[in-house]
Amino acid sequence: MDELLQALAQGFLVGSTYGLLALGMGLIYSVSGLVNFAHGDFFSLGMYLCFALFSAFALDPYVSLVITLPAMMLIGAGVYQFLIRPIAGHHLLMVIQLTLGLALLVQNGILMVFGGQFERTPSIVESKLVLLGPVVVRMPHVIACLASFGIAAALYVLLRSTDWGRAIRSVHQNAKAAALMGIDVGRVRMLTFAAGLGLLAIAAALIVPGTPMHPSLGLRYTVITLIVMVLGGMTNFVGIMLAGLVIGISEALGTIYLSDMLGMLMPYLIFVVIMLLRPQGLLKAA
């Protein structure tokens, strides 16, 4: 019983960060219909930026966010403006291939600068444990989980009731009509892309304490993020957080109760089954 509770707690905490990763991707998808296959590699980049700042100035990951957040947003705006915007409107595959080229670029850029060994970035809260009855969880996971839900809620409010949010939703619904209403569609898309990468910078700072990182892990993060986003109904932020929890918990339960192989298969199996039975995602798209 304790084992089950422990797995559930672990899966819940990890799943909430999957949700946060997918929120950034969903935000970008909702306004530009673009599936960013470099998402996981940009997430890696965020983690390595934290690592670099820690190595150079001994900055705690949570503090280094002051630098990594604007840096990642600038990168995002640049990538959208100079690489993605020029080929927007061409075949869906072309745009996907471009982001795959970008993934190669980022992944191997990291490899060139930091080398191919596993790295860890510590934080002052890293070794603190939290006891919840019989369940033991690590402090960074709790912080990441709380922050993920906080950010998801903030994003929800932002999209509901600010002008920026209304602009995003109008571009999502009908880009042409939005342009006719005087919304600068290109600018909204650029800002959203920047915001998507900014979310990744936050996610990186939250996840990096104690997480081993390697340049080649980017594609794996991308695939998990994609699965979570699609399960959540692409643009439904409540659905995306829920899907993150489903995937996180199924992964945790799978590795404990089933063989290693079945545990690894679990998220994919669940994904295929849910996609076939509920193609619109767990919740209906907003």
Binding site: G101, L102, A103, L105, L111
Partner: peptide, 13 residues
Amino acid sequence: PGLHYFVYGAVVI
């Protein structure tokens, strides 16, 4: 390590 894939990615883009 990584340089040739980096250039390859740049050429693809």
